[in-house]
Design a protein around this nucleic acid. Sequence first.
DNA 1: ACCTCATATCTCTGTCAGATATATCTGTCA
DNA 2: TGACAGATATATCTGACAGAGATATGAGGT
Lengths: 191, 191
Amino acid sequence: MSVDEWADLTPTARTILGFVAQHPRSGYDIREAARRSVSYFWGVSDGQLYPQLKLLAELGLIESPQEDPGARSKSVWHITPAGRAALTKWIRSPSAPLRMRDENLVKMMFAAELEPAEVLRLVDERRKSFEWFAKNVASPGPAQSWQADQKLGSRTTSELLHEYGKQHTENALAWCDQVEEALRGIANDRA
Amino acid sequence: MSVDEWADLTPTARTILGFVAQHPRSGYDIREAARRSVSYFWGVSDGQLYPQLKLLAELGLIESPQEDPGARSKSVWHITPAGRAALTKWIRSPSAPLRMRDENLVKMMFAAELEPAEVLRLVDERRKSFEWFAKNVASPGPAQSWQADQKLGSRTTSELLHEYGKQHTENALAWCDQVEEALRGIANDRA
DNA sequence: ACCTCATATCTCTGTCAGATATATCTGTCA
DNA sequence: TGACAGATATATCTGACAGAGATATGAGGT
């Protein structure tokens, strides 16, 4: 593999590589791991996952013990030395700018010219989605045995990452409160 | 236009419709407005903008005074009654789930197994990008004359939206502090 | 023997971002 | 009045990507 080839990998492919680097995994494992751990700041879709695994294998960055494992049987991938080198280089290169799509907020902006009741509906929708999120994603799962998780002082990196998600969620919920309070202000004016 | 046609619009098209609804705008205006106001929770890419404008016009949701204005002269779009109805229906329908791509955080997760120095580099990168953001995007521009901005108690909706962006940013920066502090903890252990 | 659910992979469609190309308009200094 | 820079304005193309759904396999129960 030439030095330039890994540079062409998509961000998704590199993320997948990172998961395989942590410990050997199948495609399905990666999907589940991504769901649990990074789903609020990164999504890995099926449509990408398997083709990218194949690509990474072709580039020699990952490999699976049994060659051509017949049809749909599970194949467990592990990282090669070349893969590990590629991963490190990726981590050291500049990151893509943050990107977000939050349709609820966009609507909120345009709802400014509508009834206060519309804004209230949107805030309610927002609150519900973040509450769901707090329950299902932002809480840290049990520590995994394979995790050689760097201790950063008293806390592990994955604890810190979950902390970030938690703070983000609480912040969003607090903002919902602020908007509702402002809306109650109107109601009081009119009463 | 049938009721079903507007339902097929993409989220991007609906966002564009929202901008035109606020007041008449050209494609370029929309692009700039999106840059200033929503760029941190929604992106409108050039590749989408003009085709979608054309589509909205074909559906009769927006129109431009001069028909076929020859070549590349500026055309200013304004919303039609049908367009306004479509917009309202959109705002009342369920929103797409929030989506995010934050490559820096992903790297942070995988850097857990590397040197603390790598994590430090990533935190530094993160801080810089959010500081840039605080300066260039998260601050409210001057109020526009066309803004019939709903007063929610003492504050307008756009003030509240900017407030959200600001809180998000401050939160992210505070988290950078936390991580760095944890890293200093290590340094002290070793000293 | 059948059913059901979790596991596992693959494919297809349409959305989308970013880069790039290109035309027009406006001011400004010669 | 003409050349030029820089802002305004529109258009196109490529490849990344999400989400849905199709398909297959195994384990456990009835």
